[in-house]
Design a protein around this nucleic acid. Sequence first.
DNA 1: TTGAAAGCGTTACCAG
DNA 2: CTGGTAACGCTTTCAA
Lengths: 337, 337
Amino acid sequence: MSTTITEIAEMTGVSKSTVHRALSGSAKIRGDIRKLVLECAARHHYQPNLSARVLVGARTYLAAILANDFGNIHFAQFLRGAGEAASGAGYHLLTASSEKELVNLKQLGLEGVIGFFQEDLEAEFDGLPTVNLVKALPPGGRKDSCLNSEVACGTLQVMRYLIGLGHRRIGHVTLSIPRDRDVKTKLSEYRHALKEAGIAYDPSLVVRSELYMEQCGYEGAMTLLTRPDPPTAIFALSDILAAGCYRAARELKLRVPRDISICGYDDKEYSSLLYPSLTTVRTPYKLLGERAMKMLIARIEGESGMDEEPLLPVLIPRGSATRPRKISTNNLSEKKI
Amino acid sequence: MSTTITEIAEMTGVSKSTVHRALSGSAKIRGDIRKLVLECAARHHYQPNLSARVLVGARTYLAAILANDFGNIHFAQFLRGAGEAASGAGYHLLTASSEKELVNLKQLGLEGVIGFFQEDLEAEFDGLPTVNLVKALPPGGRKDSCLNSEVACGTLQVMRYLIGLGHRRIGHVTLSIPRDRDVKTKLSEYRHALKEAGIAYDPSLVVRSELYMEQCGYEGAMTLLTRPDPPTAIFALSDILAAGCYRAARELKLRVPRDISICGYDDKEYSSLLYPSLTTVRTPYKLLGERAMKMLIARIEGESGMDEEPLLPVLIPRGSATRPRKISTNNLSEKKI
DNA sequence: TTGAAAGCGTTACCAG
DNA sequence: CTGGTAACGCTTTCAA
């Protein structure tokens, strides 16, 4: 197949060892011999056999990310960040879509894994250094989960923004997956923000369903907007739910944001294409990917874990939220802080 | 690190050869010894070292796809199809994001590559069996390019659909990247469909720009819709351009589809979220991925290339196109076929 | 049915 | 500075 070190040795009439020295840039070799060997290697397109190298304990600088949600723009951003961090540190990042592939790669010299594993892997997958971005962090779990940690902050930003605009009756359209950490966090921060502003929490303004996402947003908004006392703003769990809210508003001949302000969460690629463009929250996935990769590399190289600043999501104000038309003075008087 | 065949040999008191026979399921071994070895291997989580295997010529069944547009829903579909075809045939599919990674993997036993290479690789990348989905197929190039081959068919479908609805003045909003094969194909099929329907081609109804995509659609539609004799329908190069057309229509207080029908091409995830939902064309990327992987496997295993039926894109009629309100009788009389 | 030995391509070690 | 040799983990071949 491809040229080997032994072949080059034969061709140049020196020993394997000498060829190796030339190739590895060792100082202890005569200049002319090095040149001879290097030229021969180049001429024959010599490429070292990594399998053989691995066998004798060489490093591969190969890392992998286990993923199944390709096509997700956020994952793509994460991946880009991770990839750049990897190549910046001389690593190569592959993506695998099953644990089986990972096991295979491990046998080929894979050095570390970034994954979204359900279980709380104790910092390793199959004996490999691992950074685990768990969605549902079990109580007492490790702090790997840099990924979803700041949803609270993002939610607070939206809610404070709406409240700052003058809204007092704010609905929350969400999913009925009580286990999901994000769903839980968003609800609790929704309440937190209300409390902070001295607004009484009205459970009937929180609507849940478990339909297909857009449909869920539609149904939720329908429920809220057909009430005798509809909210003046809706905070949707995600942009796709917000899109469903738009549809409900259109159907009810309500104009966004004149009649109802709507905010989402995610900043998907289409969020600015909706009409009106959607006010939402963007998570710095690229930076998160970068950080995850750096954590992994640190772990691979046995360094102590660094405890960096959290990477905060940022509010993207666009056209879907504005001041409410009429502020109920009742509610205003409730304000305490 | 991990258990080796030699260690198991020592533990069970047999030779490496015997362990190997047990592990590889050879018939020529005593039942009780096989059992003993297998149990010991299981107890110690023995996993064969692939690097060593590769070194002695074993296969890895590892394939990779070279990609950089993660986050693209179409690529994700393609990948899913390819991945399923791979695992169905006992292969593992990885994704790499640079040629360097590919070269690395090759040294580790990678067997084949699916990629979107610019150059017309003669069925191999770095000596590896390759399926190349070229975007701009050079004249006389090979037929690998199952991916983009049927854009003509999709375009014809949209155009025939619009014409069938009664439209005679149809604008085309496109990009000014004349080299791009898809851009070229769509334009020529646009003309083809017009000709087929006996409608004269009016070059001024084709608008190009090279701005940021959505903006390009906006500008293009603006140009068309502010003419004294605007078209009754617009065929946009892609869904993102169509989204820009929507914005222009809204700004001009034109209603889609009542005042102007708009069709796109791609069927992105957001296309049905736009208002009104966008009539567009969907390419069967998953099937294409499946086919690409099958081609690769055939190539790896030295089989003769199969020449299957083309996989045709399909029109997705939704809410953004309808009959024109008034049909100019002038143009109707032009109809020949 | 079993064991011993050679070899895959590389690196590391030790004599020269 | 150079060459020989052992070693990595596995498979294959050849004797026993």
